[in-house]
Computed example of a mutant assay.
Amino acid sequence: MTAIWAVGVIVVFFSSLPYGIWILGSAFKKKWRKVIILLAAPIIAGLVLWRTTLFFDTRAHAEYLVRIYDTKVELGTPLFSYESPRSFNGDGYSFVVYPLPAAICNRFLSADRRLLAEFPKCPDYRKHWTTHPWHEAPADANFSKYLDFALSRYDAESAADLTIYFRAIRKALARKQTYYAFFVYDHEEYPGNIDLFIVDILGNRLYLINHNT
């Protein structure tokens, strides 16, 4: 990644040289209005690009959440978040805990066939992954290997609070009014990548877990 950034900086530097010479030439000729315009133009263009990107990213994330929980929702501020370093190809671990949003709570309190059969909907960038739709706990035995993989013992050694939340998750998955769903990509008979979503109504928690190897 460092090499890519270095190449990017070099490209930007040399591509901006003619523009910089143009500004210096205008300043040398004391064409101050032109200098101001030339200086302001890239700043304004950058701000417009940033706002446009932010708008589309926000909208895309909102649509993604609807495709997971079958309801419009804003997640708010996490109670806890852990993110391991990621490798070049994205391998790593993330674990986020939110207070359970009212919109998700209400949707799962009235869970129906649509929610339990059609959601979550796997995003296009997970097209080779398998979708396991929402199920109410207690979790079945076939889920245990995926849960063990999602609750990474290796990462628990790096963040003590993870162990506390892992225990809370296992407790929640042993009772009703907890729902779980996941996308998974298996490496032969073993899970290799997983996105796990857990809605704990009684515990008032929403868990989001990603583990890529």
Results as ranks from 00 to 15, higher is better:
L100V: 02
R107Y: 11
H128F: 11
L49M: 11
Y19F: 06
H128L: 14
N142T: 14
V35G: 04
D57Y: 08
D70Y: 07
V73I: 05
S26M: 13
G8K: 03
A139T: 04
L75V: 01
P138K: 02
W5Y: 07
I36K: 04
I104Q: 00
V35E: 02
I23K: 01
R113V: 15
I36Q: 04
D112C: 10
R114I: 15
E83P: 02
F95G: 02
F119N: 02
H135Q: 14
A150Y: 01
R126V: 10
L109R: 12
S94D: 13
A102G: 09
F80L: 02
V12A: 15
P85T: 13
L115C: 09
H135F: 14
F80Y: 08
T130D: 13
V97E: 01
P18D: 08
I4W: 09
S94I: 11
K29R: 11
S87V: 06
L79T: 05
I44T: 08
R126N: 12
G20W: 04
I37P: 00
I23H: 00
D91T: 00
W50K: 10
I44A: 08
F108A: 11
E118L: 10
S26Y: 02
V35P: 04
R51V: 14
F55C: 06
P42N: 03
D140L: 04
Y146T: 00
N106L: 14
S15A: 14
L17R: 03
A139I: 05
V97Y: 00
A45V: 10
V97T: 00
E136R: 10
W22L: 02
L65K: 07
I43W: 11
P18C: 04
E118I: 05
V7M: 07
I10N: 04
H135E: 14
F28T: 01
Y98F: 05
E118D: 10
F56S: 07
G20N: 07
G20I: 06
E74D: 14
G20H: 04
T131W: 15
L17T: 04
V12G: 07
L79C: 03
R114L: 15
S16L: 15
A41K: 01
G20P: 04
S110P: 01
N142H: 15
L65D: 07
K121G: 03
A117I: 14
P18M: 08
C105H: 06
V73H: 03
T71D: 05
R33L: 13
K121E: 11
K127S: 11
L24A: 12
L79E: 07
E118Y: 12
D70V: 11
L24N: 09
T131C: 13
F149T: 02
V7I: 07
K72D: 12
L115Y: 05
I36E: 03
D124L: 12
A103M: 05
V48C: 08
P18E: 07
P42F: 03
W50E: 09
T131Q: 15
N142E: 14
F56P: 02
Y69F: 15
D148A: 10
P138R: 00
L24V: 13
V11S: 14
A103H: 05
S87I: 04
A139G: 01
I37G: 04
W50V: 12
A60H: 06
A111N: 09
I10T: 06
V48W: 07
D91Q: 00
I36R: 06
W50M: 12
H61Y: 12
K145Q: 00
W129Y: 05
I4C: 09
R113S: 14
V97M: 01
V73A: 03
